[in-house]
Amino acid sequence: MILSLRDISKSFGEKQVLKGISLSARGGRALGLLGRNGAGKTTAIRLIMDIFPPDSGKVLLDGMPPAQSGVTIGYLPEERGLYLKKQVLEQLVYFAGLKGMPRRAAREAAMALLERVGLSEYAGSKLETLSKGNQNKVQLVATLVGDPQILILDEPFSGLDPVNAALLKELVRECVSRGKIVFFSSHQMNYIEEFCDEIAILNGGKIVLSGGIREIKHHYDRSRLVIEGADQERLASFAREQDGLVKDLQRKGSGALLKLAAPERKNELISALLAQGVEFEGVRVFEPSLSDIFVEYTEGGI
């Protein structure tokens, strides 16, 4: 199952929100959709869900419009909201019913999911009587009930304590391993790094970077090395001596980050370190964190 957006543009009034974006998500691989506030993430999500049509371009699921394939989407909106005055189970059955599930099956599925998140005792309570964290869990159940083939999770971890976050991770992992398409939108980069195999960074209505996280990191500037366990003073004098080879040196955590004049001169550096008798515990190529990459690609403004 492949969901792809092809050259999609969308304007609201004078404002062009999306300027020709293309991306594709495959079943069994989670896609992290990143972008600063106002970058067009919600618009992209709503286009995928066919709430409004794009001005130009196409959304295709396995080559045809998603509406025709009868696929169901589970959506966890960033702005959480359910019927506060209605019973938990009642509204879960309703939302599953809207996605086409028969009542009895919806009831069973909702109860099973409530059991899973430890809320089965609240099935008959009004939602407003539940704690905020439990309301969040009910919202998650509302997303998953009806067994949708596509999951769109917008800031799923906000408002969850570590135990509930672990539970959510488990549930999402399960969905990914069952071959569902999972879109993940978050500002918490550590979660994206943990879950997503692929990312797409939206900035200014365009996709500025997309692909597998590992590949992106791998293709990053390979000329920066991290040297662990070396004396900072000693390294500093070493860098001064080798100014043809070392362009920059800064402290990084317990080690040091240095930039080589060229990425292929790693062995040369190691030989120089050994020759100069600089003691160190390890040398590795510096891979930026997702957070570093995100900042780099979106810093220039939306």
């Binding site: 709430i51 702005e79 909201g81 939302f95 809207l98």
Partner: peptide, 15 residues
């Protein structure tokens, strides 16, 4: 009130 409580986000995406 469905809009106010943001239930609409889910409704509009389900139906």
């Amino acid at each position: 009130s469905e809009k106010g409580s943001r239930t609409m986000e889910l409704l509009i995406t389900s139906a």
